[in-house]
């Protein structure tokens, strides 16, 4: 499944960059993130508890941040496994100055397997859109509250 979009973050680009790459911020803003531990340079181990309606899924996985071009762009690779399936994804983030806001262009692909792939297709698109929205909203709260 391909995901693509732009979020207009009402903050300067440097600040958005710093927040996006701050593990502490990510731990607070990534939907369902239980823990995010640095395991190496730009590599993290993550625990996520995904809750959507009555569905609950615990995932353990890895996050890698690559190709950093501060404060403009980076790539991210995510890998997670849980009882209800597994998720592999990769995406590119591009930060652009757009006056009062910073436009975050994101584009990526998510591959799911196991139970969630074979029974959850109908809800995949809406769920990922919702997760992205939750993440950016939380990130915006985080950035704007900081000021």
């Amino acid at each position: 499944m391909k995901l693509k979009g732009t979020y207009a973050m009402p903050a300067p680009r440097d600040e958005v960059w710093a927040a996006l790459l701050d593990p502490a911020v990510l731990a607070r803003t990534l939907p369902g993130c239980k823990s995010l531990q640095e395991t190496g340079p730009d590599e993290y181990a993550m625990q996520m508890s995904l809750v959507i309606s009555s569905v609950k899924g615990l995932f353990e996985g890895k996050v890698r941040i690559m190709d950093q071009q501060p404060p403009e762009s980076y790539r991210i690779e995510v890998e997670g496994r849980g009882k209800i399936g597994f998720v592999n994804g990769g995406g590119a983030f591009l930060l652009k100055d757009a006056g009062d806001v910073t436009d975050i262009d994101y584009e990526g692909e998510v591959k799911v397997g196991g139970m969630i792939a074979s029974v959850g297709q109908r809800l995949m698109d809406m769920t990922s859109k919702m997760m992205i929205k939750r993440f950016f909203t939380a990130l915006e709260d985080e950035i704007t509250e900081r000021e």
Partner: peptide, 10 residues
């Protein structure tokens, strides 16, 4: 149905 797939485990 969600419970039968064990996606929901109340």
């Amino acid at each position: 149905p969600m419970m039968k797939f064990r996606l929901a485990q109340p």
